[in-house]
Computed example of a mutant assay.
Amino acid sequence: MGFRCHRHGGNVTASHCAVNFLAPAQGNLFVARAHVVKASRRQVFVDAQLMAERADSSAVVATGNTVLVPLSAA
């Protein structure tokens, strides 16, 4: 999630992070997608999903959200 946030202000640190494990992660390929819900000068809210891909199907196996705080340039 921090990589997605990097576009919105450089280096960040997490002030909150939660992960919900929905199903066993079984698959041939795993794809993580994150998007910025809201970005301000002091906080960036990010949601993410982890998908397990198989030859014939895909399923969400985990979700997460975090609040990131941009770090000042030193």
Rank of each mutant, 00 (worst) to 15 (best):
residue 57 S to V: 02
residue 59 A to Y: 08
residue 14 A to S: 13
residue 38 K to P: 04
residue 26 Q to A: 12
residue 44 V to F: 04
residue 21 F to L: 15
residue 46 V to M: 01
residue 69 V to D: 03
residue 57 S to I: 00
residue 23 A to K: 15
residue 41 R to C: 05
residue 38 K to C: 06
residue 43 Q to C: 11
residue 52 A to V: 04
residue 27 G to D: 08
residue 66 T to P: 02
residue 34 A to N: 08
residue 46 V to R: 01
residue 64 G to P: 07
residue 62 A to Q: 10
residue 61 V to Y: 03
residue 28 N to M: 14
residue 29 L to W: 05
residue 54 R to L: 09
residue 60 V to C: 10
residue 34 A to S: 15
residue 56 D to L: 01
residue 19 V to F: 04
residue 55 A to L: 12
residue 56 D to P: 02
residue 19 V to Q: 02
residue 26 Q to V: 15
residue 39 A to P: 00
residue 43 Q to A: 13
residue 22 L to D: 04
residue 57 S to A: 14
residue 62 A to V: 03
residue 58 S to M: 10
residue 59 A to I: 15
residue 15 S to H: 09
residue 14 A to I: 05
residue 54 R to W: 00
residue 30 F to W: 02
residue 55 A to R: 14
residue 55 A to P: 01
residue 51 M to V: 15
residue 46 V to S: 05
residue 62 A to T: 03
residue 55 A to S: 11
residue 50 L to C: 11
residue 16 H to Y: 14
residue 23 A to T: 05
residue 52 A to Q: 03
residue 44 V to L: 07
residue 69 V to R: 07
residue 54 R to V: 01
residue 13 T to S: 10
residue 36 V to W: 01
residue 70 P to R: 10
residue 56 D to Q: 03
residue 63 T to V: 12
residue 26 Q to Y: 13
residue 39 A to S: 04
residue 46 V to L: 06
residue 31 V to M: 02
residue 27 G to C: 01
residue 23 A to I: 00
residue 21 F to K: 12
residue 14 A to P: 10
residue 42 R to F: 12
residue 62 A to K: 09
residue 17 C to P: 03
residue 66 T to Q: 05
residue 44 V to M: 09
residue 33 R to M: 09
residue 34 A to P: 06
residue 39 A to R: 03
residue 62 A to L: 04
residue 26 Q to N: 12
residue 31 V to P: 03
residue 41 R to K: 14
residue 21 F to D: 10
residue 67 V to R: 02
residue 24 P to C: 09
residue 54 R to K: 08
residue 50 L to S: 01
residue 41 R to E: 06
residue 55 A to V: 08
residue 18 A to K: 13
residue 46 V to K: 04
residue 38 K to V: 08
residue 25 A to L: 07
residue 50 L to M: 10
residue 44 V to Q: 05
residue 58 S to L: 10
residue 22 L to G: 02
residue 44 V to R: 03
residue 15 S to F: 02
residue 48 A to D: 00
residue 64 G to N: 09
residue 50 L to E: 00
residue 65 N to A: 11
residue 52 A to G: 05
residue 40 S to H: 07
residue 72 S to F: 05
residue 38 K to G: 08
residue 34 A to C: 09
residue 29 L to S: 14
residue 13 T to F: 14
residue 43 Q to V: 13
residue 29 L to D: 13
residue 53 E to I: 15
residue 25 A to P: 06
residue 28 N to L: 12
residue 13 T to Q: 08
residue 49 Q to V: 05
residue 53 E to F: 12
residue 73 A to N: 14
residue 29 L to P: 05
residue 18 A to H: 11
residue 41 R to H: 00
residue 47 D to E: 14
residue 58 S to H: 15
residue 44 V to P: 01
residue 47 D to S: 05
residue 61 V to A: 00
residue 57 S to L: 02
residue 19 V to S: 02
residue 32 A to H: 09
residue 67 V to T: 15
residue 52 A to W: 08
